[in-house]
């Protein structure tokens, strides 16, 4: 009983791991193609048809590079930094529900009742990866980049946490599985909480250190930011964890605000194909489409908007997003009280 449970969960964990890595690998290719099309170029087209083998070539190149550790760095922490960044990035997707259950087997690695808190916990540990790596390098650019990255990430984490409280208020649960299930009955949460979604979206840009919040790796000021001294697959892990995090935040946004695996007219579809694996497959593909759209949105913004200045970034996080999300909580509470949804 326990062993069959463990085997199923282990297979699911492997599947989630493979999907995260696969999507992240092809997101690097997608990023270069999107950037190329926006700048009227062709982009990578040498490795394989349409350059489709480019991520594999990049991976092999990263492995074959010299793995260099600077003399005056802290050796152990230097290795620990990228390891933490990658491990935490891979562990976030555990609580995401992928589709409705097939033959009673939930297509979700685990549906813990504190799902949202788990996501925040793991994302917070990710800050350590950057901070430890930047400090261990013993390089001025790395240290400044790490300081910027960590203070930016922790500043936006507060607004992020506050923006999701209104979602928890209307759903009454922190389990992602239940939140997605509830949206199959009524409206997607984005229609009930548009402001919370907007705040969460902005914060996830800042959390993943993506443009317009990519100050930690601001090339013109800081060379490479916190990963200036890194080479080989250690550098690869830092760059890669950013893409895995993009995938994760796309998945979290899709499940919290856009109905997760639910498609429009879900009940109609369920009647047509029946409650079986075909429905689950359609749901999975639909969910995947939503995630890919969010990944595209991340790239679209990166190649469209210029970078913030540091004081603008801090002002936006603390003086605009934080009061706005508190306002959203109060407004949600009063609205629910007025409409008689609470006892």
């Amino acid at each position: 009983m326990l062993s069959s449970f463990l085997i199923i969960k282990f297979l699911l964990a492997i599947a989630v791991f493979a999907i995260s890595l696969g999507v992240a690998a092809y997101a690097t290719y997608g990023e270069r193609k999107v950037a190329a099309f926006m700048q009227d170029r062709i982009g990578p087209d040498r490795a394989g048809p349409f350059g489709l083998l480019q991520p594999i070539a990049d991976g092999v190149k990263m492995f074959m590079k010299e793995d260099f550790v600077p003399a005056n760095s802290n050796k152990f922490l230097f290795v620990l930094g990228p390891s933490i960044a990658m491990t935490t990035a891979l562990m976030t997707a555990v609580v995401v529900p992928w589709a409705s259950p097939v033959n009673g087997v939930a297509l979700q690695v685990t549906d813990i009742n504190i799902g949202l808190l788990y996501v925040f916990g793991v994302v917070s540990i990710g800050v350590y990866g950057i901070m430890i790596g930047g400090w261990a390098s013993n390089n001025k650019y790395s240290l400044l980049g790490a300081l910027r990255a960590s203070s930016q990430m922790i500043s936006y984490e507060i607004a992020m946490g506050l923006s999701l409280i209104s979602i928890v208020m209307i759903t009454g649960t922190m389990s992602l599985g239940k939140i997605v299930e509830q949206q199959s009955l009524g409206y997607w949460n984005v229609f009930l909480q548009p402001l919370a979604f907007l705040i969460f979206l902005i914060c996830s840009f800042a959390e993943t250190n993506r443009a317009p919040f990519d100050l930690p790796e601001c090339e013109t000021e800081l060379v490479g930011g916190y990963h200036t001294e890194y080479s080989s697959m250690k550098l690869g892990f830092y760059l890669f964890s950013e893409y895995v995090n993009m995938f994760n935040s796309g998945a979290i946004m899709a499940s919290l605000f856009f109905g997760g695996y639910n498609l429009p007219f879900a009940s109609y579809f369920a009647q047509m194909v029946g409650q079986n694996w075909i429905l689950s497959l359609i749901q999975f593909l639909f969910f995947f489409g939503k995630i890919l759209f969010f990944i595209f949105l991340f790239m679209w913004v990166r190649w469209t908007l210029p970078r913030f200045r540091y004081d603008q970034l801090m002002t936006l996080g603390w003086k605009i997003l934080l009061p706005l999300s508190i306002l959203n909580i109060v407004a949600t509470g009063i609205f629910m009280y007025m409409s008689g949804q609470i006892q």
Partner: peptide, 13 residues
């Protein structure tokens, strides 16, 4: 419910 998180940690680490 929390055991699978350990499994995922083993896979990732």
């Amino acid at each position: 419910d929390f055991l699978p998180i350990l499994l995922m940690f083993i896979v990732a680490a």
